[in-house]
Design a protein around this nucleic acid. Structure first.
Lengths: 114, 114
DNA sequence: AATAAATACCTAAGAAAATTATGTATTATA
DNA sequence: TATAATACATAATTTTCTTAGGTATTTATT
């Protein structure tokens, strides 16, 4: 597990990208998938996840679709058109940021993007 | 300039790494150097920088040394032994995190670290 | 000489985003 | 039948940053 401060600021991007790559998903599923894909290194807490989903939906990035399994409800989220654009922008921004950080921290040879 | 939320959580690591790579530096210098190295993409604000430096010093990561230029003061910071260890740990952690994020966001071929 | 810009430090109020803790309820497992 | 896993949610608190303000010196410009 990473010291939590690192993950800050990347949650929206992670969520948007999960939906971009895996189609519609429900909240719990997103958290499980991220945990699985990162070997438990990134664990999204529910207190962070649900408010983020609500906020994204409120801002028109996500569509919501309820599904009932017996009496229990699942809320499937999917990207709106606007959400698809936002996802692309956010992922590009994060990619750029990562490259900048790698350079700044001297993590790779400096003459690789020229 | 990146949307500010991305930079969150990386400031301590950036500061510690700057001091690791460039020896003793003063606050203003750190901010300038980071700005210069990232072509203005990462701009550390003073409101974030100085409290971070104070906090790192208070925690025993940094030594401080005052220098006077005429009447103006500069506060040079350098890594303590503990600070050197923390810097290494933090940089490793960030490197690992970056690799995890790249994998998670599918930014590079997945069979590159195996 | 006067003004502006850059250097160099600092703190406080507020916002943003997460953690931690708690809550509800159903379904599957031991 | 107790426990764990699934699945949602919110509230209080903490952390970390932004924004805005403050002081003061030195250098560059007009």
């Amino acid at each position: 597990m990473y010291s939590s401060e690192l993950i800050k600021g990347t949650l929206k991007t992670i969520v948007l990208n999960m939906l971009k790559e895996h189609g519609k998903m429900y909240g719990y599923e997103i958290a499980q998938k991220v945990k699985e894909l990162t070997d438990g290194k990134i664990q999204i807490t529910e207190g962070a996840l649900y408010p983020t989903l609500h906020s994204l939906e409120k801002n028109g990035e996500l569509d919501i679709e309820k599904q009932f399994l017996g009496k229990r409800v699942r809320k499937y989220y999917s990207l709106t058109e606007q959400g698809q654009q936002t996802a692309a922008v956010k992922v590009n921004e994060l990619t750029d940021f990562i490259n900048t950080m790698k350079f700044l921290l001297d993590l790779e040879p400096k003459i690789s993007n020229g």
